[in-house]
């Protein structure tokens, strides 16, 4: 060991690095060069901080109503103004970040789990199973996604959690088709044949070879989909099918305040801005991830 370390003039730190860390370093080098992606990551990080430390950051509770200060414009005391119940909009947006990010993350994780499961089965085993699963995806995709989520929510009953479930179901085919196509490619790789030639079974091949080689596109698509999931949740909230008042969900806040748009535009403007910002953040970050994780883009 010591001899080889001497013969190669590499700093000790480089030699000791585990492969996982060095892969992360490579990834970070590629990601760092991408300015928009960094901006996106900063925005996302900012909202995550808001969500995590909402209790500390928010100057007031989400349901502190005060009829004397309703619809006040932004001021030193109420940074983003107050709504029709005299509640502090800034505090509500800060707590709303929790709801929106939660919906975004968990809806996407749900669709990744089920989508990957179905996609792997369809892609790996093919034949009739593939046809059945792929047609199921096609059926889901045939509906406009917001209509389908509305339909699911109306069956389950309107609430934020049911909106989450609906968004997760609607997005299953997105991941399912992505994973299926990836599996079809990876399945033909020679290392799969080599794995089989040393006696590896299907389960092991799927978990050890096919899934790890399909992760990068799933992560990228997942990040991008968090944005759409948040948007869908806000849309459902606006339509009254998602979070219910007085929950400070951004779409619900928009919906609650839409009648004051001319008199008190800040009641609508700031929740809307929050939605836009977080969606842009995830989109920029997702694009950056794709560039950094896609081996074809590496120089």
């Amino acid at each position: 060991m010591s001899q080889t370390a001497q013969s190669q003039n590499l700093p000790a730190a480089v030699k000791e690095r585990s492969p996982f860390i060095s892969a992360l370093v490579d990834f970070w080098k590629a990601f760092r060069k991408n300015k928009p992606a960094i901006i996106g990551a900063v925005i996302v990080f900012f909202f995550i901080l808001l969500a995590v430390f909402a209790n500390i950051i928010a100057p007031q509770g989400i349901n502190n109503q005060n009829i004397n200060i309703r619809l006040e414009p932004p001021s030193a005391q109420h940074w983003l103004g107050t709504d029709s119940f005299g509640r502090d909009i800034f505090s509500r947006i800060v707590f709303g970040a929790r709801l929106s990010l939660r919906v975004g993350f968990f809806a996407v994780i749900g669709s990744i789990i089920f989508g990957t499961f179905l996609g792997v089965i369809a892609g790996y085993f093919g034949k009739v199973i593939d046809t059945v699963i792929s047609r199921f995806f096609d059926i889901l995709l045939a509906f406009p996604s917001i209509l389908l989520s509305i339909a699911i929510v109306s069956i389950l009953g309107p609430s934020l959690n049911n909106a989450l479930v609906a968004i997760a179901i609607v997005n299953i085919p997105v991941f399912g088709r992505l994973v299926r196509s990836r599996v079809l490619t990876v399945k033909e790789e020679e290392y799969i044949m080599a794995a089989r030639s040393i006696g590896m079974g299907n389960t092991r091949i799927i978990f050890n070879h096919i899934l790890p080689n399909s992760f990068a596109p799933i992560i990228v698509q997942g990040t991008l989909n968090i944005a759409t999931a948040i948007l869908d949740a806000a849309g459902l909230g606006f339509l009254g099918m998602g979070a219910q008042p007085p929950q400070p969900e951004w779409g619900t806040m928009l919906s609650d305040s839409r009648q004051y748009i001319t008199d008190a535009p800040w009641t609508v403007l700031f929740p809307g801005l929050a939605i836009i910002l977080v969606v842009i953040g995830f989109n920029l970050m997702g694009d950056g991830l794709r560039d950094a994780l896609d081996p074809r883009m590496k120089n």
């Binding site: 790789e189 020679e190 290392y191 044949m193 080599a194 794995a195 030639s197 006696g199 790890p212 080689n213």
Partner: peptide, 19 residues
Amino acid sequence: RGNDIAMIFQEPMTSLNPV
């Protein structure tokens, strides 16, 4: 396979899992 009969392939560049 592997235990009694094993095989090696033509393309060593693609016969190992890259990840």
